[in-house]
Amino acid sequence: MTYLIKTYQLSKSYDGHAVVSNLNMNVQKGEIYGLLGPNGAGKTTVMKMMTNLIKPSSGEIEIFGETVTEHSYEMLKRIGSIIEFPVFYEKLSARENLQLHCEYAGYYDHLAIEETLTLVNLQAVNNKPVKSFSLGMRQRLGIARAIITKPELLILDEPINGLDPIGIKELRGLFQTLCHEYRMTMIISSHILSEVEQIADTIGVINQGQLIEEITVKEIHERYTEYIEIRSDDIQKAVYVLEEILCIDNFRVMDGGWIHIYTLSLPQTEIAKQFILYGIHIEEIKKKSLSLEDYFIHLLDRGLQHA
């Protein structure tokens, strides 16, 4: 197994406040890695440290088998990125913005400009000033600028944030093309769970600066494909029976009187039997499939409980 990125106890603090804490992250070569977490979880800070925009307070980052330092100039040439919002020369066209970027980067393959504009579906508007671009067009131009030098690693911070469904679908296809056809390893941060589920190979769940879990999407589907859902009018007593009588602690109380039970070692008939014995009325009980959103929320809850 080849890792393109590894972090070791990576931490970043500002004025004594930990934004990222002891983060150990592993990104395999050739995969799309989804960094998931709510706003303020530390995703952007991690990406800024990877791209040398800010320095870690402690810990190390290893990319391409080398430790990232303030002198890692050659390493950065192999990385493309969008951190926060891409900024352009507003009066210039998409093509002119890319030409300037290539000049800065010392990259003189001018055929790559046309190829990249076509790849991100901006070939029809490449002569219009960027100030007339929609948000989706700006995002695609930002990605074009990040990939024009054909980097081995692409780091994208919330690239689908604010896009409409059509724009999201277009970028989803683009990311898969870049990974599978152009062999780019990608890290994509997002809080839009359904989209990450469709494109990521591995997800890292981060909250309050801590990496709660790192797991492949395939493993999630295999390990957590089902859960038991119960609806009752006496949640307090139901929780007591689950914890004290059935010794189940892997569950979550939802709104509307619902409880999701993720431990499937006991059949739902046994759970129903114990509820009835303790006088708990069951309005509904059934097995359901677990989505990435369910899993993500469950992880965040458990992470907060153990923080």
Rank of each mutant, 00 (worst) to 15 (best):
E74A: 09
S289A: 13
K29V: 06
P129Y: 00
S57G: 06
E222L: 13
H260E: 14
N24S: 10
F296L: 07
N26S: 14
E31R: 09
E84D: 05
C102G: 04
F85M: 13
S289K: 15
L76W: 03
D109R: 03
Y104V: 13
I79K: 00
G80Q: 03
T67I: 14
N24M: 11
Y278Q: 12
T225V: 11
E222Y: 11
I285W: 02
T2M: 13
I166E: 06
S189P: 02
L211I: 04
A94D: 00
T177S: 11
S194T: 14
F133D: 02
M186H: 01
C247M: 11
S265N: 13
I259V: 12
I160F: 00
Q305A: 15
E170R: 00
K29D: 14
K128T: 12
L23H: 05
N207E: 05
R145S: 03
M1K: 14
S232P: 02
I155Q: 01
L211Y: 11
L277A: 13
V46F: 03
L242Y: 13
S21R: 11
I147W: 05
E197Y: 02
I168Q: 10
L92H: 10
E90D: 12
I168N: 08
E114K: 14
I220T: 08
I155K: 01
Q28V: 03
N250I: 05
F85H: 15
V20R: 11
Q198C: 10
S134K: 11
V68R: 09
N26L: 10
I54W: 01
